[in-house]
Amino acid sequence: MAAGLQLMIIDDEPIVGKRLKRMFEKEGYAVETFLNGASAIEALEKKHFDIIVTDLMMGSVDGMKVLDTAVKKNAGTRVIIITGFGDQGTIDEALNKGASDFLIKPFKFEELYKAVKKAESGLKAT
């Protein structure tokens, strides 16, 4: 069990948030979902999240901006990017900025779960 780690899920596709919330909660995470980057950044100001799973393309405040803000706020926060389309340039940019993983949609829950676990082990190491 993940001992109540704070997980933030941001995707403008509501289904993604709903399904992932249910599945991660089953695994013992405290999950909060957001439909856009702006509201997620707002929540980051108020509360600490251990792991952030964010979509990349979401209108004016995109996943890259969320990544920037989260890393700036707390270097220990792990950010996993999920996106419908990712060229190598974008992937490299995200990883350089400190993203711990990059998943292309459609992905299996297991893959994301693995990525989260990996991020979690990173958290423990620090």
Partner: peptide, 11 residues
């Protein structure tokens, strides 16, 4: 296309 596919797959 990947967005609805992802939604379907996750669901």
């Amino acid at each position: 296309l990947n967005n609805p596919l992802n939604n379907i797959s996750l669901t």
